[in-house]
Write a protein that binds this DNA or RNA. Structure first.
Lengths: 208, 208, 208, 208
DNA sequence: CATGAATGAGGGTTCATTCAT
DNA sequence: TATGAATGAACCCTCATTCAT
């Protein structure tokens, strides 16, 4: 996540300054994309929020699309890192699932509102951008899918289409962590976990 | 095709035309919004698809936003009608749920790709538009919420936060009927129902 | 800044209005390109000079480059037409030359300052634009070249490299009709003809 | 030259550096202006070619325009020097002309592509810049004009408007040494001289 | 003094909306 | 009434210029 573009030891002032500015832009853009969507986010807005000049953004990112891509790729790769770190194949699927969730939710503020934008970019973006997004997303989905297959083979999970179920899991996660906040107070970590458990693990029905 | 000179057919043609024209616009806009998203849909496009002049649209709808709102309200009210018709409080919640689903899925092509746009409009739209959307959506959500409370009180469903669960149900429905299609072949009605059952009713876990 | 296009054109109808607007744009752009060059001409400027909205230009021309190309191609094709009409192979080269000059100079105001821009477009334009220009220019040059060869074969002209001489003739024409005007009062038709005769036909030296 | 604090190596380095730096900038700018034109040459480009920081340019030249002016003035004054050195009023006009040409063509690479830019600067530049250019150019033109008058008075040249003829001579020189190269292999010195002789001295026509 | 990161005015282009026909 | 040519605000992006280091 952190940029090491410069020699880390050179001039502390310069490095920090540069890094900070890029960080400012990334954070401002993240927030604005998440808040207003891709199209509705203007570079002027981002600049204003980041407290930098409009041109400054273009010293770090060649286009608006590239700025967006970088944010998204960063978030997703961060998520993947977490997953890889937390999953222990000697444990049960649902144990892994909730431990991963715990870690992911630590970073909620970073990416909570962001993921929903994948849809918009697909609508509006160029083919290149779309391709990039698709690849990056499929990494996550493939990974979950793989875990689901594993769980099924160990009889920890019912028979199901791992493709669809993985897709729904991701959607549910996005819905609870980000989309919900549009209309309501954010949910607590425990609320999120509890609802995922409800839907994924136990089901809602009471079977007489 | 129809030839007669202006005079005789004018009145009738116009009347019919007026009715048809509005429908044509609504349908064209629906398709375009669903296909390309709100921002990426241009009024020119809509006019071309609807086979009317660009200016004509503005005789029916004051702004692009109003056009969108009207489409959305139409879809949602249609859904509400279906729900009211299909729900029978003497039956069990899940029975009702699946009967409603059956009916809703009949109209899938009408609104499948549309609902996801609620998010985009909220992002891009004016406060007024957002308020309208929120009201109209809350009608659906409130209704489901109410049904859930009812189900809980009758011990057909576990204790849960009806608010959140209703929200998740809607999200899941949208995910399966519309968002999935972005990347994959559309699911069959039965696939959709089966996965909703899996998540909502039974849960995924196998409890030894 | 007040629009009075409508009043006078009302009777004449739509077509004339439309045509006029395009003409206005073309003329404004011609003048501005000729006066300020390609890069230094802004679409806003053109719109202001043409007394139309900026967006109007884009109903006729997709890009600034296309606008420029169209003007240039128009001028050059007009010149070619004149040449073809005026040249009579039964007459002598210099007779033809001066008759062509006479006709070309009629349209001086249309293209006088324009041709010099070919250079700038070559510098700034896209490869497509450059290719178009090169083709269109070579039409003129090839034609003159061909005529020169003919004149040489009939012993009306000294042996020389027709390629280079054609090039110099065009440059001289541009210099006298357009570039000169940058610093001085425009030359009269007769002055132009006389100087071309001086350079091309007789030479400057007095040979004792 | 100036010697103060710092260690000796640095001092000398700086001094030489300063001198070199300005030259480097001038040469880089010359090449870039000639190659890409005025507008299309960016200060970044110049800095990169000159191997100096962008800001450094502004220690020598207040604006891009001033940088350009200085280059142009340099070239023109160089040309004037050559003319003054080569012209011998005891000899004939055309003898002088060709001796000057010989010398000028030695420096072709320095200014060949540059002169055409006078036009562009006049298009793009501020009134001050244009005024400066006009003055500097008129120096050359006045000088040639003066020589022409002299030649006419000595009956070495036909009666003509010395103003216009001087102008055309310069244009022809630019055309042959610089503009031609855009489309073709550069001409040799002898080719250039031969064509100037053809046009200026003898004329193209064969008079029966 | 040299530097290049930062800046923002200004460019080309799009598109929702208007209005004369 | 239906139309689409006309419009201009607002978008993304470039680049000459400045200034803190």
């Amino acid at each position: 996540m952190v940029m090491h573009t410069m020699d880390s030891a050179k001039q502390e002032g310069k490095n920090i300054g540069t890094v900070d500015r890029k960080k400012q832009v990334l954070e401002a853009a993240s927030r604005s994309f998440a808040l207003f969507g891709y199209k509705a986010t203007t570079m002027e807005q981002v600049a204003k929020i980041a407290n930098v000049g409009k041109g400054t953004i273009y010293t770090f990112f060649n286009t608006k699309e590239q700025l967006f891509d970088e944010i998204l790729i960063g978030v997703i790769s961060e998520m993947k890192t977490i997953i890889l770190r937390e999953v222990d194949h000697d444990r049960k699927f649902f144990e892994n699932l909730f431990r991963v969730l715990d870690s992911l939710l630590e970073f909620r503020s970073e990416h909570e509102l962001l993921m929903k934008l994948s849809q918009e970019v697909r609508d509006v973006g160029t083919p290149q951008s779309q391709e990039a997004m698709a690849q990056v997303e499929s990494v996550i989905l493939n990974y979950i899918e793989h875990e689901i297959r594993h769980a099924i083979s160990r009889h920890e999970m019912r028979e199901c289409d791992p493709n669809i179920v993985a897709f729904l899991m991701v959607k549910m996660y996005i819905a609870l962590t980000s989309e919900w906040n549009k209309y309501h107070e954010p949910l607590t970590k425990d609320q999120i976990k509890e609802h995922i458990r409800l839907f994924l693990e136990d089901g809602l029905a009471i079977h007489a």
